[in-house]
Design a binder for these strands. Structure first.
Length: 151
DNA sequence: GCCAACGTTGGC
DNA sequence: GCCAACGTTGGC
């Protein structure tokens, strides 16, 4: 089993939205590195730190898990979508995604600030300078430490 | 709104 | 294949 961190802007899609919908396709990723993680390395049941970005208090808001793998992102073929990709072909779709399922919302958000202050988490990709990748692999021990910090 | 750090595009 | 210009991310 692998562990992940996935970023979402809460104005667009928050942990509360995932709670309401129970499940959601992780649409709109248009970065090859992030896509490759989803396409090649995500397995059913992998656990995900749900990260809120570009908001008042950036940080990890809860946990989700991978409920379906290797899905075709439908928005790449929708002309009206901001995620439309004219270069992607139906017979060879460029953008592959996973479906995620709600697991829990943290009682206390584990803020970016807190993560930066925690020495044991200094290796996390999300706090490395210049790291903008929206999907990061996470060490198992970091995953469970963050879960503990949310209590 | 600013801006640093990256990624992508396209001319050559 | 290089690289300048441009676009995006995301914290502050």
């Amino acid at each position: 089993m692998n562990f992940w961190l996935m970023k979402s802007e809460p104005d667009v899609f928050s942990i509360d939205d995932l709670f309401k919908n129970k499940k959601s396709g992780w649409e709109g990723v248009r970065n090859y590195q992030a896509r490759n993680f989803m396409r090649d390395q995500m397995n059913l049941g992998d656990l995900i730190l749900f990260y809120h970005s570009s908001c008042d208090e950036p940080g990890i808001a809860g946990i989700a898990k991978v409920s379906k793998t290797k899905l075709v992102d439908p928005l790449q073929f929708e002309k009206s979508s901001e995620y439309y990709d004219p270069k992607s072909k139906e017979e060879d779709p460029r953008w592959i995604m996973v479906e995620v399922e709600f697991v829990e919302k943290f009682k206390n958000l584990v803020s970016l600030k807190k993560i930066k202050e925690t020495k044991e988490l200094s290796n996390m990709m999300v706090i490395q300078k210049g790291s903008r990748l929206s999907i990061n692999p996470v060490d198992e021990k970091d995953f469970f430490l963050i879960k503990k910090m949310a209590l």
